[in-house]
Design a protein around this nucleic acid. Sequence first.
DNA 1: TCCGTTATTGACTAATGAGTCCAGAATTGC
DNA 2: GCAATTCTGGACTCATTAGTCAATAACGGA
Lengths: 194, 194
Amino acid sequence: MARPREFDRDAAVQRAMSVFWRKGYAATSTDDLLRAMNIGRQSLYDTFGDKHRLYLEALERYQRERVAENIRRLRSTASPLAGIEALVIGIIAADKPTRERGCMGVGSICEFGNTDPDLVTLRTRSGGALHKALIEQLRHAQAANEIGANVDIERAARFVETTMFGLQVAAKAGASLQALRDTAAFAIASLRHR
Amino acid sequence: MARPREFDRDAAVQRAMSVFWRKGYAATSTDDLLRAMNIGRQSLYDTFGDKHRLYLEALERYQRERVAENIRRLRSTASPLAGIEALVIGIIAADKPTRERGCMGVGSICEFGNTDPDLVTLRTRSGGALHKALIEQLRHAQAANEIGANVDIERAARFVETTMFGLQVAAKAGASLQALRDTAAFAIASLRHR
DNA sequence: TCCGTTATTGACTAATGAGTCCAGAATTGC
DNA sequence: GCAATTCTGGACTCATTAGTCAATAACGGA
Protein backbone atom coordinates (compact mmCIF):
# COMPACT_ATOMS: atom_id res chain seq x y z
CA MET A 1 0.00 0.00 0.00
CA ALA A 2 0.94 3.61 -0.28
CA ARG A 3 -0.29 7.11 0.33
CA PRO A 4 -4.08 7.20 0.41
CA ARG A 5 -6.12 9.66 -1.58
CA GLU A 6 -6.93 12.85 0.30
CA PHE A 7 -10.27 13.60 -1.32
CA ASP A 8 -13.53 11.67 -1.48
CA ARG A 9 -13.79 10.20 -4.94
CA ASP A 10 -17.54 9.96 -4.83
CA ALA A 11 -18.05 13.53 -3.67
CA ALA A 12 -15.67 14.68 -6.40
CA VAL A 13 -17.72 12.94 -9.11
CA GLN A 14 -20.85 14.49 -7.72
CA ARG A 15 -19.34 17.96 -7.97
CA ALA A 16 -18.13 17.30 -11.49
CA MET A 17 -21.65 16.13 -12.34
CA SER A 18 -23.06 19.36 -11.03
CA VAL A 19 -20.80 21.45 -13.25
CA PHE A 20 -21.38 19.37 -16.39
CA TRP A 21 -25.10 19.43 -15.67
CA ARG A 22 -25.17 23.19 -15.47
CA LYS A 23 -22.81 24.05 -18.32
CA GLY A 24 -22.72 21.03 -20.64
CA TYR A 25 -19.56 19.29 -21.80
CA ALA A 26 -17.94 21.65 -24.26
CA ALA A 27 -18.50 24.79 -22.19
CA THR A 28 -16.94 23.20 -19.10
CA SER A 29 -13.18 23.64 -18.81
CA THR A 30 -10.90 21.41 -16.79
CA ASP A 31 -10.22 24.43 -14.59
CA ASP A 32 -13.94 24.70 -13.85
CA LEU A 33 -13.85 21.07 -12.80
CA LEU A 34 -10.77 21.39 -10.63
CA ARG A 35 -12.23 24.35 -8.81
CA ALA A 36 -15.57 22.66 -8.22
CA MET A 37 -14.06 19.33 -7.21
CA ASN A 38 -11.41 21.06 -5.14
CA ILE A 39 -8.63 18.75 -6.24
CA GLY A 40 -5.37 19.17 -8.10
CA ARG A 41 -4.98 18.71 -11.81
CA GLN A 42 -2.89 15.60 -11.56
CA SER A 43 -5.38 14.03 -9.17
CA LEU A 44 -8.07 14.48 -11.77
CA TYR A 45 -6.07 12.85 -14.54
CA ASP A 46 -4.78 10.05 -12.30
CA THR A 47 -8.16 9.25 -10.84
CA PHE A 48 -10.54 9.81 -13.74
CA GLY A 49 -8.47 9.49 -16.90
CA ASP A 50 -9.50 12.59 -18.80
CA LYS A 51 -12.32 15.06 -19.22
CA HIS A 52 -14.34 12.74 -21.41
CA ARG A 53 -14.11 9.78 -19.03
CA LEU A 54 -15.02 12.01 -16.11
CA TYR A 55 -18.05 13.23 -18.02
CA LEU A 56 -19.10 9.67 -18.67
CA GLU A 57 -18.77 8.81 -15.02
CA ALA A 58 -20.69 11.91 -13.98
CA LEU A 59 -23.48 11.17 -16.43
CA GLU A 60 -23.56 7.53 -15.36
CA ARG A 61 -24.05 8.61 -11.79
CA TYR A 62 -26.74 11.08 -12.81
CA GLN A 63 -28.64 8.46 -14.76
CA ARG A 64 -28.37 5.86 -12.03
CA GLU A 65 -29.75 8.27 -9.45
CA ARG A 66 -32.50 9.47 -11.72
CA VAL A 67 -33.66 6.09 -12.86
CA ALA A 68 -33.83 4.86 -9.28
CA GLU A 69 -35.76 7.95 -8.23
CA ASN A 70 -38.12 7.66 -11.17
CA ILE A 71 -38.87 4.01 -10.63
CA ARG A 72 -39.44 4.66 -6.95
CA ARG A 73 -42.01 7.35 -7.81
CA LEU A 74 -43.58 5.15 -10.44
CA ARG A 75 -44.28 2.49 -7.82
CA SER A 76 -45.10 4.87 -4.98
CA THR A 77 -48.88 4.77 -5.27
CA ALA A 78 -51.64 2.25 -4.86
CA SER A 79 -53.17 3.01 -8.25
CA PRO A 80 -50.89 2.11 -11.18
CA LEU A 81 -51.93 5.09 -13.28
CA ALA A 82 -51.38 7.43 -10.35
CA GLY A 83 -47.84 6.05 -10.21
CA ILE A 84 -47.30 7.04 -13.82
CA GLU A 85 -48.61 10.48 -13.02
CA ALA A 86 -46.29 10.66 -10.01
CA LEU A 87 -43.40 9.76 -12.31
CA VAL A 88 -44.15 12.49 -14.79
CA ILE A 89 -45.06 15.16 -12.26
CA GLY A 90 -42.05 14.12 -10.19
CA ILE A 91 -39.49 15.22 -12.74
CA ILE A 92 -40.66 18.82 -12.35
CA ALA A 93 -38.75 20.43 -9.49
CA ALA A 94 -40.71 22.81 -7.26
CA ASP A 95 -37.94 25.38 -6.89
CA LYS A 96 -37.12 27.44 -9.91
CA PRO A 97 -33.31 27.13 -9.97
CA THR A 98 -33.47 23.34 -9.88
CA ARG A 99 -36.21 23.30 -12.47
CA GLU A 100 -34.29 25.51 -14.85
CA ARG A 101 -31.19 23.37 -14.59
CA GLY A 102 -33.13 20.96 -16.77
CA CYS A 103 -32.09 17.37 -17.26
CA MET A 104 -28.49 16.37 -17.76
CA GLY A 105 -29.56 13.38 -19.83
CA VAL A 106 -31.50 15.54 -22.24
CA GLY A 107 -28.58 17.96 -22.32
CA SER A 108 -26.28 15.12 -23.24
CA ILE A 109 -28.59 14.00 -26.04
CA CYS A 110 -28.78 17.51 -27.44
CA GLU A 111 -25.05 18.10 -27.22
CA PHE A 112 -23.85 14.77 -28.60
CA GLY A 113 -26.74 13.10 -30.38
CA ASN A 114 -25.53 9.66 -31.37
CA THR A 115 -21.96 10.61 -32.11
CA ASP A 116 -20.48 9.07 -28.97
CA PRO A 117 -20.89 5.28 -28.64
CA ASP A 118 -20.21 5.33 -24.89
CA LEU A 119 -23.04 7.76 -24.38
CA VAL A 120 -25.35 5.71 -26.55
CA THR A 121 -24.61 2.65 -24.45
CA LEU A 122 -25.21 4.52 -21.23
CA ARG A 123 -28.45 5.99 -22.52
CA THR A 124 -29.69 2.65 -23.79
CA ARG A 125 -29.05 1.05 -20.45
CA SER A 126 -30.77 3.62 -18.24
CA GLY A 127 -33.51 4.34 -20.77
CA GLY A 128 -34.20 0.65 -21.06
CA ALA A 129 -34.54 0.20 -17.32
CA LEU A 130 -37.14 2.92 -17.01
CA HIS A 131 -38.91 1.73 -20.14
CA LYS A 132 -39.23 -1.76 -18.73
CA ALA A 133 -40.64 -0.51 -15.45
CA LEU A 134 -43.02 1.77 -17.29
CA ILE A 135 -44.31 -1.02 -19.50
CA GLU A 136 -44.93 -3.15 -16.44
CA GLN A 137 -46.78 -0.32 -14.73
CA LEU A 138 -48.90 0.33 -17.80
CA ARG A 139 -49.89 -3.32 -17.89
CA HIS A 140 -51.00 -3.07 -14.29
CA ALA A 141 -52.99 0.03 -15.12
CA GLN A 142 -54.63 -1.80 -17.95
CA ALA A 143 -55.37 -4.80 -15.77
CA ALA A 144 -56.92 -2.45 -13.22
CA ASN A 145 -59.04 -0.94 -15.97
CA GLU A 146 -57.49 2.50 -15.52
CA ILE A 147 -56.63 2.66 -19.18
CA GLY A 148 -58.53 1.06 -22.03
CA ALA A 149 -57.88 -2.53 -23.06
CA ASN A 150 -57.24 -1.43 -26.63
CA VAL A 151 -54.36 0.88 -25.75
CA ASP A 152 -51.04 -0.29 -27.19
CA ILE A 153 -48.76 -0.47 -24.16
CA GLU A 154 -45.54 0.01 -26.08
CA ARG A 155 -46.89 3.13 -27.73
CA ALA A 156 -48.23 4.48 -24.48
CA ALA A 157 -44.82 4.02 -22.89
CA ARG A 158 -43.11 5.93 -25.67
CA PHE A 159 -45.73 8.62 -25.36
CA VAL A 160 -45.01 9.01 -21.65
CA GLU A 161 -41.27 9.11 -22.28
CA THR A 162 -41.68 11.72 -25.00
CA THR A 163 -43.81 13.80 -22.67
CA MET A 164 -41.05 13.61 -20.07
CA PHE A 165 -38.47 14.77 -22.61
CA GLY A 166 -40.73 17.63 -23.62
CA LEU A 167 -41.28 18.72 -20.05
CA GLN A 168 -37.54 18.80 -19.39
CA VAL A 169 -37.00 21.08 -22.37
CA ALA A 170 -39.93 23.29 -21.44
CA ALA A 171 -38.59 23.53 -17.88
CA LYS A 172 -35.16 24.56 -19.13
CA ALA A 173 -36.80 27.16 -21.33
CA GLY A 174 -38.37 28.70 -18.23
CA ALA A 175 -41.93 27.39 -18.24
CA SER A 176 -43.70 27.97 -14.93
CA LEU A 177 -44.25 25.26 -12.36
CA GLN A 178 -47.96 25.51 -12.90
CA ALA A 179 -47.77 25.25 -16.66
CA LEU A 180 -45.52 22.21 -16.45
CA ARG A 181 -47.69 20.42 -13.91
CA ASP A 182 -50.73 21.24 -15.96
CA THR A 183 -49.21 19.80 -19.06
CA ALA A 184 -48.11 16.67 -17.25
CA ALA A 185 -51.59 16.16 -15.86
CA PHE A 186 -53.10 16.79 -19.28
CA ALA A 187 -50.91 14.13 -20.83
CA ILE A 188 -51.71 11.57 -18.16
CA ALA A 189 -55.41 12.33 -18.36
CA SER A 190 -55.23 11.59 -22.05
CA LEU A 191 -54.14 8.05 -21.15
CA ARG A 192 -57.02 7.65 -18.76
CA HIS A 193 -59.63 8.66 -21.29
CA ARG A 194 -59.04 5.91 -23.74
CA MET B 1 -20.03 53.53 -52.74
CA ALA B 2 -17.03 51.27 -52.57
CA ARG B 3 -15.91 47.73 -53.18
CA PRO B 4 -18.89 45.38 -52.96
CA ARG B 5 -18.87 42.23 -50.85
CA GLU B 6 -17.70 39.16 -52.74
CA PHE B 7 -19.79 36.59 -50.92
CA ASP B 8 -23.54 36.20 -50.53
CA ARG B 9 -24.39 37.32 -47.01
CA ASP B 10 -27.53 35.23 -46.87
CA ALA B 11 -25.87 32.05 -48.06
CA ALA B 12 -23.10 32.63 -45.52
CA VAL B 13 -25.59 32.86 -42.65
CA GLN B 14 -27.25 29.71 -43.85
CA ARG B 15 -23.96 27.85 -43.77
CA ALA B 16 -23.16 29.19 -40.33
CA MET B 17 -26.59 28.04 -39.23
CA SER B 18 -25.89 24.57 -40.50
CA VAL B 19 -22.68 24.32 -38.47
CA PHE B 20 -24.19 25.71 -35.27
CA TRP B 21 -27.16 23.42 -35.73
CA ARG B 22 -24.98 20.36 -36.01
CA LYS B 23 -22.40 21.17 -33.34
CA GLY B 24 -23.99 23.69 -30.98
CA TYR B 25 -22.44 27.01 -30.00
CA ALA B 26 -19.57 26.13 -27.70
CA ALA B 27 -18.28 23.24 -29.78
CA THR B 28 -18.18 25.37 -32.94
CA SER B 29 -14.94 27.27 -33.53
CA THR B 30 -14.58 30.37 -35.63
CA ASP B 31 -12.36 28.31 -37.92
CA ASP B 32 -15.22 25.84 -38.41
CA LEU B 33 -17.39 28.77 -39.39
CA LEU B 34 -14.88 30.31 -41.78
CA ARG B 35 -14.39 27.00 -43.56
CA ALA B 36 -18.12 26.34 -43.88
CA MET B 37 -18.97 29.87 -44.92
CA ASN B 38 -15.97 30.03 -47.20
CA ILE B 39 -15.07 33.59 -46.26
CA GLY B 40 -12.10 35.25 -44.63
CA ARG B 41 -11.80 35.97 -40.95
CA GLN B 42 -12.03 39.70 -41.34
CA SER B 43 -15.13 39.40 -43.49
CA LEU B 44 -16.81 37.48 -40.70
CA TYR B 45 -16.01 40.06 -38.05
CA ASP B 46 -16.83 43.02 -40.31
CA THR B 47 -20.09 41.59 -41.51
CA PHE B 48 -21.43 39.78 -38.46
CA GLY B 49 -19.76 41.34 -35.45
CA ASP B 50 -18.61 38.32 -33.54
CA LYS B 51 -19.35 34.66 -32.97
CA HIS B 52 -22.22 35.34 -30.61
CA ARG B 53 -23.97 37.79 -32.93
CA LEU B 54 -23.54 35.40 -35.81
CA TYR B 55 -25.10 32.65 -33.72
CA LEU B 56 -28.04 34.90 -32.94
CA GLU B 57 -28.52 35.69 -36.59
CA ALA B 58 -28.27 32.03 -37.56
CA LEU B 59 -30.78 31.01 -34.92
CA GLU B 60 -33.08 33.84 -35.90
CA ARG B 61 -33.06 32.59 -39.44
CA TYR B 62 -33.67 29.04 -38.31
CA GLN B 63 -36.62 30.04 -36.18
CA ARG B 64 -38.13 32.20 -38.86
CA GLU B 65 -37.95 29.41 -41.41
CA ARG B 66 -39.28 26.85 -38.99
CA VAL B 67 -42.16 28.91 -37.71
CA ALA B 68 -43.26 29.70 -41.25
CA GLU B 69 -43.01 26.05 -42.24
CA ASN B 70 -44.89 24.91 -39.15
CA ILE B 71 -47.69 27.39 -39.57
CA ARG B 72 -47.99 26.44 -43.22
CA ARG B 73 -48.37 22.78 -42.26
CA LEU B 74 -50.79 23.65 -39.51
CA ARG B 75 -53.08 25.30 -42.02
CA SER B 76 -52.49 22.86 -44.85
CA THR B 77 -55.55 20.68 -44.33
CA ALA B 78 -59.30 21.04 -44.52
CA SER B 79 -59.84 19.57 -41.06
CA PRO B 80 -58.39 21.72 -38.25
CA LEU B 81 -57.29 18.76 -36.14
CA ALA B 82 -55.64 17.15 -39.16
CA GLY B 83 -53.64 20.37 -39.47
CA ILE B 84 -52.40 19.97 -35.94
CA GLU B 85 -51.42 16.43 -36.71
CA ALA B 86 -49.65 17.60 -39.86
CA LEU B 87 -47.76 20.11 -37.74
CA VAL B 88 -46.55 17.53 -35.26
CA ILE B 89 -45.84 14.81 -37.80
CA GLY B 90 -44.19 17.39 -40.02
CA ILE B 91 -41.32 18.10 -37.66
CA ILE B 92 -40.11 14.52 -38.06
CA ALA B 93 -37.82 14.30 -41.05
CA ALA B 94 -38.08 11.21 -43.21
CA ASP B 95 -34.37 10.79 -43.80
CA LYS B 96 -32.28 9.70 -40.88
CA PRO B 97 -29.43 12.24 -41.05
CA THR B 98 -31.83 15.17 -41.05
CA ARG B 99 -33.89 13.62 -38.29
CA GLU B 100 -30.87 13.03 -36.08
CA ARG B 101 -29.70 16.60 -36.50
CA GLY B 102 -32.57 17.40 -34.15
CA CYS B 103 -33.87 20.92 -33.65
CA MET B 104 -31.56 23.88 -33.38
CA GLY B 105 -34.07 25.69 -31.16
CA VAL B 106 -34.17 22.83 -28.68
CA GLY B 107 -30.40 22.65 -28.84
CA SER B 108 -30.20 26.33 -28.02
CA ILE B 109 -32.53 25.91 -25.04
CA CYS B 110 -30.49 23.01 -23.72
CA GLU B 111 -27.17 24.77 -24.20
CA PHE B 112 -28.12 28.19 -22.83
CA GLY B 113 -31.32 27.84 -20.82
CA ASN B 114 -32.36 31.33 -19.85
CA THR B 115 -28.88 32.73 -19.35
CA ASP B 116 -28.83 34.77 -22.55
CA PRO B 117 -31.44 37.56 -22.80
CA ASP B 118 -31.12 37.84 -26.57
CA LEU B 119 -31.95 34.19 -26.95
CA VAL B 120 -34.89 34.50 -24.59
CA THR B 121 -36.26 37.35 -26.67
CA LEU B 122 -35.83 35.40 -29.87
CA ARG B 123 -37.45 32.32 -28.40
CA THR B 124 -40.38 34.27 -26.99
CA ARG B 125 -41.03 35.85 -30.34
CA SER B 126 -41.00 32.71 -32.47
CA GLY B 127 -42.59 30.54 -29.79
CA GLY B 128 -45.34 33.11 -29.38
CA ALA B 129 -46.11 33.18 -33.08
CA LEU B 130 -46.58 29.44 -33.29
CA HIS B 131 -48.50 29.39 -30.04
CA LYS B 132 -50.94 31.96 -31.35
CA ALA B 133 -51.51 30.05 -34.57
CA LEU B 134 -51.94 26.83 -32.63
CA ILE B 135 -54.50 28.35 -30.28
CA GLU B 136 -56.46 29.60 -33.25
CA GLN B 137 -56.35 26.20 -34.91
CA LEU B 138 -57.46 24.47 -31.72
CA ARG B 139 -60.44 26.80 -31.51
CA HIS B 140 -61.38 25.86 -35.04
CA ALA B 141 -61.06 22.20 -34.15
CA GLN B 142 -63.31 22.74 -31.18
CA ALA B 143 -65.83 24.65 -33.25
CA ALA B 144 -65.81 21.80 -35.76
CA ASN B 145 -66.43 19.36 -32.92
CA GLU B 146 -63.15 17.53 -33.54
CA ILE B 147 -62.14 17.99 -29.94
CA GLY B 148 -64.41 18.20 -26.93
CA ALA B 149 -66.00 21.48 -25.87
CA ASN B 150 -64.61 21.05 -22.36
CA VAL B 151 -60.97 20.91 -23.48
CA ASP B 152 -58.95 23.87 -22.23
CA ILE B 153 -57.42 25.32 -25.38
CA GLU B 154 -54.44 26.92 -23.66
CA ARG B 155 -53.54 23.63 -21.99
CA ALA B 156 -54.02 21.69 -25.18
CA ALA B 157 -51.67 24.07 -26.98
CA ARG B 158 -48.98 23.62 -24.33
CA PHE B 159 -49.47 19.89 -24.56
CA VAL B 160 -48.91 19.93 -28.30
CA GLU B 161 -45.82 22.12 -27.89
CA THR B 162 -44.40 19.85 -25.22
CA THR B 163 -44.98 16.85 -27.45
CA MET B 164 -43.08 18.61 -30.21
CA PHE B 165 -40.17 19.29 -27.87
CA GLY B 166 -40.18 15.68 -26.77
CA LEU B 167 -40.19 14.38 -30.32
CA GLN B 168 -37.20 16.55 -31.22
CA VAL B 169 -35.22 15.13 -28.33
CA ALA B 170 -36.28 11.57 -29.11
CA ALA B 171 -35.29 12.12 -32.75
CA LYS B 172 -31.87 13.39 -31.75
CA ALA B 173 -31.48 10.36 -29.50
CA GLY B 174 -31.98 8.14 -32.52
CA ALA B 175 -35.62 7.03 -32.27
CA SER B 176 -36.89 5.42 -35.47
CA LEU B 177 -39.10 7.22 -37.94
CA GLN B 178 -41.89 4.80 -37.19
CA ALA B 179 -41.64 5.19 -33.43
CA LEU B 180 -41.70 8.97 -33.73
CA ARG B 181 -44.66 9.05 -36.08
CA ASP B 182 -46.46 6.60 -33.86
CA THR B 183 -45.91 8.74 -30.84
CA ALA B 184 -47.02 11.86 -32.65
CA ALA B 185 -50.20 10.15 -33.81
CA PHE B 186 -50.82 8.80 -30.33
CA ALA B 187 -50.57 12.28 -28.86
CA ILE B 188 -52.91 13.79 -31.41
CA ALA B 189 -55.39 10.96 -31.00
CA SER B 190 -55.46 11.75 -27.31
CA LEU B 191 -56.77 15.21 -28.21
CA ARG B 192 -59.45 13.75 -30.41
CA HIS B 193 -60.78 11.41 -27.76
CA ARG B 194 -61.82 13.99 -25.25
C1' DT C 1 13.36 2.95 10.20
C1' DC C 2 13.59 2.52 5.65
C1' DC C 3 11.65 1.26 1.10
C1' DG C 4 8.28 1.00 -2.40
C1' DT C 5 4.28 3.00 -3.85
C1' DT C 6 1.01 6.35 -4.68
C1' DA C 7 -0.84 11.30 -4.06
C1' DT C 8 -0.11 16.05 -4.49
C1' DT C 9 1.63 20.34 -6.28
C1' DG C 10 2.66 23.67 -9.49
C1' DA C 11 5.15 24.61 -13.44
C1' DC C 12 5.12 23.43 -18.11
C1' DT C 13 3.77 22.39 -23.25
C1' DA C 14 1.77 22.65 -27.47
C1' DA C 15 -2.44 23.50 -29.57
C1' DT C 16 -6.33 26.05 -30.18
C1' DG C 17 -9.51 29.69 -28.91
C1' DA C 18 -11.61 34.40 -30.24
C1' DG C 19 -10.67 38.56 -31.94
C1' DT C 20 -7.36 42.48 -34.14
C1' DC C 21 -4.21 44.80 -37.35
C1' DC C 22 -2.52 46.15 -41.55
C1' DA C 23 -1.26 46.21 -46.21
C1' DG C 24 -3.11 45.63 -50.60
C1' DA C 25 -7.07 44.93 -53.85
C1' DA C 26 -11.35 46.17 -55.90
C1' DT C 27 -15.07 49.11 -56.79
C1' DT C 28 -17.96 53.59 -57.63
C1' DG C 29 -18.41 58.57 -58.16
C1' DC C 30 -16.19 62.16 -60.09
C1' DG D 1 -7.51 58.22 -64.02
C1' DC D 2 -8.03 59.67 -59.29
C1' DA D 3 -10.03 59.72 -54.65
C1' DA D 4 -12.75 57.80 -51.27
C1' DT D 5 -14.35 53.79 -49.46
C1' DT D 6 -14.89 49.21 -48.41
C1' DC D 7 -13.48 44.34 -48.80
C1' DT D 8 -10.00 40.62 -48.48
C1' DG D 9 -6.09 37.76 -46.88
C1' DG D 10 -2.86 36.54 -43.79
C1' DA D 11 -0.06 37.36 -40.10
C1' DC D 12 -0.56 38.40 -35.44
C1' DT D 13 -1.90 38.68 -30.25
C1' DC D 14 -2.86 36.99 -26.09
C1' DA D 15 -5.84 34.07 -23.29
C1' DT D 16 -7.31 29.63 -22.55
C1' DT D 17 -7.36 24.84 -23.66
C1' DA D 18 -6.47 19.78 -22.48
C1' DG D 19 -3.11 17.17 -20.94
C1' DT D 20 2.01 16.05 -19.08
C1' DC D 21 6.17 16.18 -16.20
C1' DA D 22 9.06 16.08 -12.41
C1' DA D 23 9.89 17.05 -7.77
C1' DT D 24 8.12 16.40 -3.26
C1' DA D 25 5.08 14.53 0.36
C1' DA D 26 2.69 10.96 2.79
C1' DC D 27 1.57 6.55 3.75
C1' DG D 28 1.81 1.01 4.67
C1' DG D 29 4.52 -3.00 5.10
C1' DA D 30 8.69 -5.22 6.47
